[in-house]
Design a protein around this nucleic acid. Structure first.
Lengths: 250, 250
DNA sequence: TCGGGCGTTCGACAATGCCGAACGCCTGGC
DNA sequence: GCCAGGCGTTCGGCATTGTCGAACGCCCGA
């Protein structure tokens, strides 16, 4: 059984030390805390700085955790969401006969973090990683409606008209969001891609924080009945799955 | 100029690869992506797993980002808050003549992340790192009032009676929180420590998310006038500082 | 059962990391 | 102004640690 790589272990110890101490540390403090000679600690810290995991204050020369770590931490949060949702998303695609999307807020868009194909064997392109507009998709409108503090205000969005059905007036979009809040899900009836509809429900982590949205996507006439309402069976399946995923996120 | 420590650089590359790919990776994929021989990649990945920065799925043997990284990322978020608030907190202590606390929600308590002594040269103990009760301190009530999704509901809290003034009934606490929301700050009149009062205002990051609270702490009669209202000068100073910090967090 | 693919271990060796000595800069005290 | 001390940083010899080809062991599918 080969041993661990010592320099990587030491790098991890430096990061934990910086994280556990509530202030920037000087090289001498780091070296003393880890019982390392200063040039050894310096080599480690300098490399961590070069890779973005540690920042160095230009005036005091002290070291602190870097933004590269923060980004990785947030990505890990997202992976947890995906892991919790994956099985339920698969099952939802199976029971609904539609494609399933899992999306999160990223900057001012929806980032697709998981995509289950419609289970009919038709030719489909995997869209994981794509950016979708907040105002013109069910996922986006769901996030706008249920995670207002994490999303821009409708009035601050560029309401690009993707199709003739896209909301291009903030007040109209606000009405859609109010309706979504009332129903517990948000819909789109061909607002991003003509003829393609969607419905999405929020995913909540501990404390009720909305951390993402789960959506169904397919031909609009398959999702919505004559009155424009989401078909009751689909609503039940979507809301059921989003509830189970939210429980798994606690 | 000495070079970087190669194995640490490679470890960072592994972490970025795992973060940037939306799914768990096998060793062969990691080795191929980084153009490393498998045993080399294995040594790196195994060490990262041992230090908690990488998790390995027991069934598939695939590797993904670990929870240790997530924790460090969150700690970095907190350090950002502290860095943004530090100078304003110092100035607030100077202008108010009181001690200043900066706190965040951690589990079901307030974690003190910064503490500026009252500037009168009196003997004081540094309390950074301490846990304070949410229901009995101004910081805690501020977080309960303004960050409801990140804090427990009053009815779910253990309302321990620290002093004779502590709120021990959820309905009473709810009233305090409603008052705080109305005023923009929360107060405590000796509910945690007899005779010691506090007032706290929320700190907001981008999107309006409340990420912490800034508080004044001192003898209750210095904070509150005869009618029990926070002295106007202190209210103005506290709210001014919290606004400036919130701007710095955008 | 066999073969392929996978993660993991073994051990030789050389390259890389380690670390004592020294350097250069900054600050504070005299 | 000068000096000393404290700090982060560099240098370079050397040995230890990391690297990596070869092999192992396990699992799954044909």
């Amino acid at each position: 059984m080969p041993g661990a790589i010592q320099s990587i272990e030491r790098a991890a110890a430096v990061l934990r030390l910086l994280g556990g101490t509530g202030r920037p540390l000087g090289l001498n403090e780091i070296a003393a805390a880890l019982d390392l000679p200063r040039p050894t600690a310096h080599g480690i810290v300098r490399t961590l700085r070069d890779v973005g995991f540690v920042d160095q204050d230009m005036d005091s020369n002290r070291y602190m955790l870097g933004s590269g770590l923060q980004e990785l931490g947030h990505l890990r949060d997202r992976h947890d969401l995906r892991a919790a949702a994956m099985n339920w998303a698969d099952a939802l695609a199976g029971s609904s006969g539609l494609a399933v999307h899992l999306g999160v807020v990223e900057h001012r868009t929806v980032r697709l973090v998981h995509h289950v194909f419609r289970p009919d064997g038709s030719h489909q392109r995997l869209r994981t990683g794509e950016e979708l507009p907040l105002h013109a998709t069910a996922l986006g409108k769901c996030l706008l409606a249920f995670a207002p503090v994490a999303t821009p205000r409708p009035g601050d969005l560029d309401l690009h008209p993707w199709t003739g059905r896209t909301c291009t007036v903030a007040a109209t979009l606000e009405k859609h969001l109010a309706t979504a809040r009332h129903r517990g899900w948000a819909g789109d009836t061909g607002e991003f891609e003509a003829g393609v509809g969607g419905a999405a429900a929020p995913l909540r982590a501990s404390g009720g924080v909305v951390v993402g949205a789960l959506g169904l996507v397919g031909p609009a006439e398959e999702l919505f009945g004559v009155g424009g309402e989401l078909r009751p069976r689909l609503a039940e399946q979507l809301l059921g799955a989003s509830r189970e995923i939210s429980v798994a996120l606690l």
